[in-house]
Computed example of a mutant assay.
Amino acid sequence: MTSVRGICDSRFDRVGQALQRNIDDGAEVGASVVVDIDGHRSVDLWGGFRDVEHNSPWEMHTITNLWSCTKMVTALAALLLVDRGELALDAPVAKYWPEFADNGKSDVEVRHLLSHTSGVSGLEQPATLEDFYDARGTAARLAGQRPWWTPGTASGYHVLTYGHLIGELVARISGVSLTRFVDQEIARPLDADFQIGAAAADWPRIAPVIAPVVAPMPDADIDPGVAAPDSPAARTFAVGATPEDANTGAWRRAELGAVNGHGNARALANLLSVIARGGESDGARLLRRPTIDRVLEPQADGVDLVLGIPLRWGIGFGLPCPQTLPWIPDGRVCFWGGWGGSMVVMDLDRRMTISYVMNKMSAGIIGSPRSAEYVTAVYDALES
């Protein structure tokens, strides 16, 4: 047994109590939770263990694979270029990446990539996970593909391709890789312990991800058409990653801007509170308000063609969808999470960011009972 450490304002005691209880009863192995309200850390807690054997405690500077929480940071990289006037959300992708116009994609816009509506949610077969480790090679293959549905008409979650598509745009505009851009332009300026992939020197402090007990399935009834053999879902999931893959050196050395960011709850709060705080962080303005407002513009609202559940997408982030995640409040809120339950919620009206990261994965694809418990405890505290 280990005690939760860190800071927690008294009004958020239920958050700390929930984290301690979940660690004590084994629902969590190791985890961290942060609540940032306009730059004040009301909650910054961590505890448990880095390993399933309970030999190594989860420390302040423990990091882990963040799965799709990585997508939010990759989206933030694109938004920085938008804010600087170097990338236009409504421009064709081919304006910056001419090869992408091939096979009927000349009208695909940048916002379609960011909102999972481009029709390019996976690699055509034959393909393997190892192919994705070649970031530029995979991007070239995606540029040559035909969309799997009419771009802009529906979302189809870009499980692995999101980082390659946005990363190629970032590389072509900035002249540096997505990994380097995020490090130089976002993580270092915001003092965030975050990296795409993980440097070998940091491997000793990584908490390996722990596979869920049961296979992940969407938490809703799936339209049979979604899972048909020739559907975008089947074609997207023809290449997948496992928790065991995420604990390998090959994974950590790769640039997978959709799924292999490494960090903790504090790192994600440092990065993404920029959205909740109107583009500012510690006196520095990274994004202007019009750029932030565009994040909240609905781009898709309906059953996602890959995940098979109702989703609402803004530009780069999910928007509240009571049918799927009733514990995410309505309003000027955006969010997303990672496979197994990690979650970041940005509440622009309250200038608040909630982040949660863990190593023991739950079965859910989006959120988990634990992430719901922590987020609900935060909002209950605010209401009381």
Results as ranks from 00 to 15, higher is better:
Trp46Leu: 06
Ile173Ser: 01
Ala101Gln: 11
Gly340Asp: 02
Leu305Thr: 05
Trp313Gln: 12
Ala200Gly: 07
Asp245Asn: 14
Ile7Val: 14
Gln145Pro: 02
Pro147Phe: 06
Trp46Tyr: 15
Asp380Gly: 03
Ala171Gln: 15
Ile366His: 03
Val182Gly: 07
Arg253Met: 05
Phe317Glu: 08
Ala234Thr: 14
Tyr96Cys: 11
Ala381His: 08
Gly197His: 10
Pro126Tyr: 06
Thr117Lys: 00
Val29Phe: 00
Leu165Gln: 05
Pro243Glu: 04
Ile196Cys: 06
Gly337Leu: 03
Asp9Pro: 01
Ile173Phe: 00
Ala234Tyr: 04
Arg84Thr: 10
Val110Asp: 02
Gly331Leu: 04
Pro243Ser: 12
Ala201Trp: 01
Phe181Leu: 06
Ser371Phe: 05
Asp134Pro: 01
Arg180Ala: 12
Ser32Asp: 07
Ala143Val: 13
Asp349Lys: 08
Lys105Cys: 01
Thr248Cys: 05
Gln17Met: 11
Asn270Val: 00
Thr291Ala: 06
Gly367Ile: 04
Arg50Gly: 11
Gly104Leu: 07
Gly104Lys: 07
Leu89Glu: 12
Asp51Met: 10
Thr128Asn: 09
Gly156Pro: 10
Pro329Gln: 08
Cys8Val: 13
Thr161His: 04
Asp301Cys: 02
Ser371Leu: 07
Ala199Cys: 09
Ala140Phe: 01
Ser3Arg: 14
Tyr356Ala: 10
Leu79Asn: 08
Ile328Glu: 12
Gly341Trp: 10
Thr153His: 12
Ala171Trp: 10
Asp134Lys: 05
Ala200Gln: 15
Pro329Val: 08
Pro329Lys: 09
Ala254Val: 05
Val213Asp: 11
Val170Lys: 03
Asp183Trp: 00
Ser32Glu: 09
Val344Tyr: 03
Ala88Ser: 14
Ala254Arg: 09
Gly104Pro: 08
Pro290Val: 11
Asp83Gln: 12
Ser174Met: 06
Phe335Trp: 15
His40Gln: 13
Glu255Gly: 08
Ala18Gly: 08
Leu113Gly: 03
Ser368Val: 02
Asp107Arg: 14
Leu319Asn: 09
Leu114Ile: 11
Asn247Ala: 04
Arg141Met: 04
Pro57Thr: 14
Pro212Ser: 15
Val34Asp: 00
Ile166Ser: 02
Phe100Ala: 12
Gly39Asp: 10
Arg289Pro: 05
Val375Phe: 06
Ser155Gln: 09
Val345Ala: 00
Leu319Thr: 08
Pro92Trp: 03
Gly331Gln: 06
Tyr356His: 13
Gly263Arg: 01
Ile222Gly: 00
Arg235Lys: 15
Cys334Arg: 00
Ser342Gln: 14
Val209Cys: 03
Tyr379Ala: 04
Thr291Lys: 05
Pro329Phe: 02
Ala372Tyr: 08
Asp131Tyr: 00
Ile7Tyr: 10
Leu66Gly: 09
Tyr374Phe: 15
Asn359Pro: 13
Val239Met: 01
Thr138Tyr: 07
Phe317Thr: 06
Gly39Ser: 05
Gly104Glu: 04
Ala220Phe: 09
Ile275Val: 14
Met346Val: 03
Leu160Thr: 13
Val303Ser: 00
Thr161Ala: 03
Met60Ile: 10
Leu76Gly: 02
Gly47Met: 07
Ile366Gln: 02
Ser68Glu: 11
Glu280Met: 10
